[in-house]
Simulated scan of single mutants.
Amino acid sequence: MNYENLLISIEEKIATVTINRPTKLNALNKATIEDLHKAIKILGKNDDVRVIILTGSGEKAFVAGADISEFANYTVVEGAQLAAQGQELLFDFIQDLKKPVIAAVNGFALGGGLELAMACHFRIASDNAKMGLPEVTLGVIPGYGGTQRLPQLVGKGRAMEMIMTAAMISAQEAQQYGLVNHVVSQSELIDFTTAIAKKIIKNAPFAISKAIKAINANYTDGKNGFDVEIKSFGKCFGTQDFKEGTTAFLEKRKAEFTGK
């Protein structure tokens, strides 16, 4: 399937989704959000894909923010709808996807771009990356989950400071804060991220999906993460992958997982 603002490649069970609006620094507009939803939904159902890497085109930006021209004249109701629809369609959708989504942050990740990276299951940054939530300089607040996910990742105090000052932080600071897992040179970014993805695809897909669900439950109001873990742990025992994994361990060989 062809997309106006995305480039997609699949190799060795790893799908790379590249946001391709270089003249706009890959800014998120409505069409791009819809394309991302469609593409990730299809990849999520593709048995030939085990991990998704999300990145931006060019060397300047992952996603430099939202396309402000689309909502500059919105009303109160329209603004709330914009946030609600975006969160449901893309940001929460990525967070809850059963397959791992890794953000390879190449350059600026600002506003909606940082919110998109935070919705991914974890983040790897190039050493020239800059991250921030500058929405208060426009008279609004982050609306795609930024006020919730940033404090979960970096702590309440740092999140308060970042959001209220609208300051950008470097990739190195982001790593110190726990916002990104690794920092590498831009030339190494995709290869480094792919190497981690290859480690993931060696493991049982069903178990990976249940791990994502259990971890997310700890950050979801009204859910008991321990209960979700217990139930998910039990469900793993009914899979072919569990039988294969335990048998392979006892036979001292590498397991061949199918996701069933």
Rank of each mutant, 00 (worst) to 15 (best):
I8H: 00
E34M: 00
A104M: 11
I10D: 05
R158N: 15
A119G: 12
K156H: 14
Q240M: 12
A171M: 07
A207N: 02
V183L: 12
I212W: 11
E12R: 14
D35H: 01
T246K: 15
K30W: 02
V184D: 09
N216K: 07
E135C: 05
P100C: 11
N216H: 06
M164C: 07
V49F: 10
I40Q: 13
R123E: 06
A31K: 00
I52Q: 08
A211G: 13
A27H: 00
F91Y: 06
I200H: 13
D227A: 09
A166K: 03
T194R: 12
T55N: 04
Y3R: 06
V17G: 05
D127K: 11
S170F: 05
M168Q: 11
L179V: 14
L36G: 00
A31D: 00
R123C: 13
K198Y: 09
C236I: 13
N224W: 02
I208H: 14
A66Q: 08
V228Q: 00
K41T: 15
T193S: 09
E88Q: 12
I201G: 04
M160A: 11
A103I: 08
A125T: 03
L43P: 10
Q172H: 10
A197G: 04
Q240F: 06
G178L: 01
E256Q: 10
Q186G: 07
S126A: 08
V51Y: 10
E78S: 06
I230R: 05
K202W: 05
V228I: 11
P205A: 05
S57N: 09
S9T: 14
K213I: 02
G145R: 02
R253P: 05
V154L: 04
L133P: 09
L43Y: 06
F237N: 01
L6W: 10
S187V: 07
D221E: 14
E11M: 14
A84G: 10
A66T: 11
E135D: 07
N2Q: 11
L90G: 08
E244W: 14
Y219G: 08
A61D: 09
E11Y: 12
G44I: 06
G155Y: 15
S9C: 07
F237S: 03
E251P: 06
K213S: 15
V154A: 04
R123G: 13
V184L: 05
M131Y: 10
G178T: 13
L89A: 15
A207D: 00
V136K: 11
A31Q: 02
A217N: 14
